[in-house]
């Protein structure tokens, strides 16, 4: 296999197809229990709070706060070589403190990133037909 020029594309799990389909539409769809209405992340089959198998997908506001971050300077993947230094950020969504996504911040210098800063989801193409949920300063 030739060295890839991009990070790997997500392969949607059966239980998470709507999350990735939502990203491609520009919507941040979060999984919620249809019975007890509690959110969960990562997407999964059963509600860990009430064990219901019924689920629904809720369009989240896309608003959240930076929970933590790192600036990667040592590339460990061929596609990272031309990208370092780059940020990897955890964003905690305002809908529920359990919703903490690993993502990237765009539209900001790496050295300006701070824990707690408000951010807003944006959707960026990784390759044609595959959009990822990223965040920008709100």
């Amino acid at each position: 296999m030739a060295a890839p020029s991009n990070f790997p594309v997500p392969i949607p799990d059966f239980d998470a197809e709507e999350f990735w389909a939502g990203c491609n539409r520009g919507e941040l769809m979060m999984q919620r229990c249809a019975e007890c209405k509690r959110f969960r992340w990562l997407p999964r089959s059963m509600c860990p709070f009430c064990n219901s198998l019924e689920r629904e997908w809720i369009k989240a506001s896309g608003r959240g706060k930076v929970y933590s971050y790192t600036i990667v300077t040592h590339p460990v993947h061929p596609a990272a070589v031309s990208r370092v230094p780059y940020n990897v950020v955890q964003v905690q969504l305002q809908e529920d403190p359990d919703l903490i996504l690993v993502t990237n911040l765009v539209g900001i210098a790496n050295d300006a990133i701070r824990i707690g800063m408000p951010v807003q989801a944006v959707f960026e193409e990784l390759e044609p037909g595959v959009k990822l949920p990223k965040f920008k300063p709100a």
Binding site: P8, P10, I11, P12, D13, A16, V102
Partner: peptide
């Protein structure tokens, strides 16, 4: 990136 890796590797 399948499984849980889908939520980390695409972001580097």
């Amino acid at each position: 990136a399948p499984g849980a890796r889908a939520y980390s590797e695409p972001f580097g």
